[in-house]
Structure formats: structure tokens, C-alpha cells
């Protein structure tokens, strides 16, 4: 083991064998909480984390995805209810057409569109398209704006 200097303490650093990263030989350098302490401790406002269009998009995608994932049981329950009986169907329809139901649907559509747009951009990236700095910046802006357009279109459609 090599002692890694830093932050006034000695941490156990990686040993000299790096062949297999997943058998636990590549051990922790510094616990996450400790690592951030150096910055959190500044008795001053820490530097504003840098936000690019692509990093904004990435976190939007993650949060939208989490939101959709957590609402899966809701969709499934509504679907199940609507198929089970006439009464259940009416119940679901009434909820969806209520004000809160519409707002909820709007949120779900926004999340789906955001997740979809960001995902599409990632898929193109996987094919090696649009990864240069300039293209990536532009496509990130486009994908950031996309869900808002969809929501706007939906609102216009409901009127």
C-alpha cells in the first residue's frame, strides 16, 4: 500500500497492482464526504458549480428518468383500473380530465419528452454523431428546450 498524502491525513491509496479494478484491490482514495470537505469548509461561498448546457441536460435526464420510474406504479395502477371495470374506467377518466389530473399529465409528458430528447442525443452520440464541442453544445440546447415545446403544444391542443 502506498500512503497518499493529503488534507492533513494519510489515506490508504491504491497499491501497485492495477490489473483488476473490480476485485477490490483498487481501494478508496478518499471517502466522498472527506473529499468534498476541502471545498465545503471555505468560510466563503464555494465557487458556483459550472453549468454547461450538456451538464444541465444530463441532470434533467436523470431527474426526469427517476420521476418516471417512480411513477411507474401509478401508470400501471391506472391502466389496471381502467381495464378492470366500467366504474374503474370512469374513475380514471375523471381523474385524468380533472385540473390536477391534467397538471399531473403535463408533468409526466414534460418528463417523458425531456428524457426522450436527451436519450436521443445520447443515442446519436453512441453512433459517433455530434460529439465535437460546438455541435454538442447546440444539440444540448435543442434538447433542453424540446420538452417545453411539447408541453406548449399540448396546452394549445387542450384549448
Amino acid at each position: 500500500m502506498v500512503a497518499v498524502r493529503g488534507h492533513g491525513k494519510v489515506y490508504n491509496g491504491p497499491c501497485s497492482e492495477y490489473q483488476n479494478l473490480f476485485m477490490g484491490r483498487y481501494t478508496s482514495v478518499m471517502p466522498a464526504r472527506e473529499r468534498n470537505k476541502a471545498h465545503l469548509l471555505i468560510g466563503h461561498r464555494p465557487p458556483r458549480p459550472w453549468l454547461s448546457a450538456a451538464s444541465l441536460l444530463s441532470s434533467t435526464q436523470r431527474w426526469a428518468g427517476l420521476f418516471l420510474a417512480l411513477s411507474t406504479p401509478y401508470f400501471l395502477y391506472s391502466f389496471d383500473l381502467s381495464l378492470r371495470s366500467e366504474a374503474g374506467f370512469t374513475q380514471v377518466l375523471q381523474w385524468v380530465q380533472s385540473l390536477w389530473g391534467r397538471l399531473w399529465t403535463l408533468a409526466c409528458v414534460w418528463a417523458f419528452a425531456a428524457h426522450l430528447a436527451a436519450g436521443l442525443r445520447l443515442l446519436l452520440g453512441d453512433l459517433g454523431l455530434g460529439l465535437d464541442r460546438e455541435m454538442a453544445r447546440r444539440s444540448a440546447w435543442a434538447a433542453n428546450l424540446f420538452p417545453w415545446f411539447v408541453v406548449l403544444a399540448l396546452l394549445i391542443g387542450w384549448r
Binding site: 459550472w50 454547461s52 450538456a54 451538464s55 444530463s58 436523470r62 442525443r121 445520447l122 452520440g125 459517433g128 460529439l131 465535437d132 464541442r133 454538442a136 444540448a140
Partner: peptide, 19 residues
């Protein structure tokens, strides 16, 4: 890697690790 591309944006040598 989640294609956040901060690496590309900050690289002082204009390299593209994401790609």
C-alpha cells in the same frame, strides 16, 4: 461516462475524451 462532456469543454488542448 454519461456524456456530460465537461471534459471536452475544459480540455486546454482541445481534445475530445467523450468521443
Amino acid at each position: 461516462c454519461r456524456t456530460v462532456m465537461n471534459c471536452v469543454n475544459v480540455c486546454p488542448k482541445d481534445l475530445n475524451p467523450t468521443e
